[in-house]
Structures are given as structure tokens and as C-alpha cells.
Simulated assay, not measured.
Amino acid sequence: MLRVIGNFWEVSMSRNIIALVLSFSLAAFFAPNASWAAEDHVAEAIQHTKEAIDHGKQGHANILADHAQVGLQHAEAAEKEKANPHTESAIKDLKDAAEHGKLGHADVATKSAESALGHLSQVK
């Protein structure tokens, strides 16, 4: 009888340890950590804005619009995290770039994207 209780204790302890390790692993994975949870939205906005400019120079207005839209989403997320007048200006320019890109105005959209890139590069 004691042996069964002893085995039960050993099995129960090993299950408890596994559950504890799994819990800590999940908590560490999903914990709001600045290096994990906070994506660098400004860097992403810059990257997509550069892509938009490259496609605009090639006359690909629709692809420019797509990249400007993604860059806009990241710029808006950066603005929510930390307000900045340069981010605010970049948002306006990226909206303009996306709108003109959808209309097929690659040249105008490219200029707006270049202006947005200038503002985004000044965000600190």
C-alpha cells in the first residue's frame, strides 16, 4: 500500500513539475516584453516607404499604393505608441501616396512617399 502511494507521489510530482515548467514557458513566451511585443513600427514604416518609392520610380503605382498602405499602418502604430510631429506628417504623406497610387499617379505618389520618408527618418 505504501508503495502505491509512493509511486503516486512520484508520478504526481513529475506531472506537477512538467505543468510548472510548461506554465513558466508559456508565461515567458506571451509576457509583454519590450523586445518581443513592441515591434519597431518606425523601422517597418521606413522599409515599406522605401519599397513604395522604388516601385513608384518604376511606374508601378498599384504596388506603390500597397507598400504605402502598409507603411501607413506602421506609422500609425508608432504614433499611438509615442506621438511625434514627424510621424504625424509622415502619416499625412503616406495617406496621400496611397491615394495617388491607387489612382495610378505614380509620380505624385512617389513624391509624397519621399516626403514621408524624410519625416520618418527624423523620428527618434
Rank of each mutant, 00 (worst) to 15 (best):
M1R: 08
L2M: 14
I5Y: 06
G6I: 06
G6D: 04
G6H: 01
G6S: 09
G6W: 03
F8I: 08
F8D: 03
E10M: 08
V11K: 13
V11N: 09
V11C: 03
S12Y: 09
S12H: 02
S12I: 07
S12V: 08
M13P: 00
R15Y: 12
N16M: 10
N16R: 11
N16A: 15
I17K: 09
I18R: 11
A19V: 12
L20M: 10
L20W: 02
L22R: 03
L22K: 02
S23R: 05
S23D: 01
S23W: 09
F24I: 15
S25P: 00
S25L: 15
L26G: 14
A28T: 12
A28N: 10
F29N: 06
F29W: 14
F30I: 12
A31L: 15
N33F: 13
A34S: 15
W36D: 08
D40Q: 10
H41E: 10
H41P: 04
H41Q: 10
V42Y: 02
A43E: 13
A43Q: 13
E44A: 14
A45T: 07
A45P: 05
A45Y: 02
I46Y: 03
I46K: 06
Q47D: 14
H48F: 11
T49K: 08
K50L: 14
E51I: 10
E51Q: 13
E51W: 09
E51Y: 11
E51D: 15
I53W: 06
I53E: 03
H55E: 13
H55W: 09
G56S: 09
K57P: 01
Q58N: 12
G59H: 08
N62E: 14
N62S: 14
I63G: 01
I63H: 06
I63A: 10
I63S: 08
I63N: 03
L64T: 11
H67R: 09
H67P: 06
A68T: 08
Q69K: 15
V70P: 04
V70S: 12
V70H: 12
G71A: 11
G71Y: 01
G71K: 04
G71T: 04
G71P: 07
L72N: 05
H74I: 06
H74N: 11
A75P: 04
A75N: 05
A75T: 07
A75R: 01
E76S: 14
A77C: 00
A77I: 06
A78Y: 02
E79M: 15
K80N: 12
K80F: 00
E81K: 13
K82E: 13
A83Q: 15
N84L: 02
P85M: 07
H86K: 12
T87F: 02
E88D: 10
I91N: 02
K92E: 12
D93H: 15
D93C: 01
D93P: 02
L94K: 04
L94N: 04
A97I: 07
A98C: 05
A98Q: 10
E99W: 00
E99G: 00
K102Y: 00
K102G: 04
G104V: 06
H105D: 15
A106D: 12
D107V: 13
A109G: 13
A109P: 03
T110K: 12
T110S: 07
S112R: 06
S112W: 03
E114W: 05
E114N: 06
S115V: 00
A116K: 03
A116W: 04
A116L: 08
L117G: 01
G118K: 06
H119M: 00
H119Y: 05
H119S: 08
L120D: 01
S121L: 13
Q122G: 04
V123E: 02
V123N: 02
K124W: 00
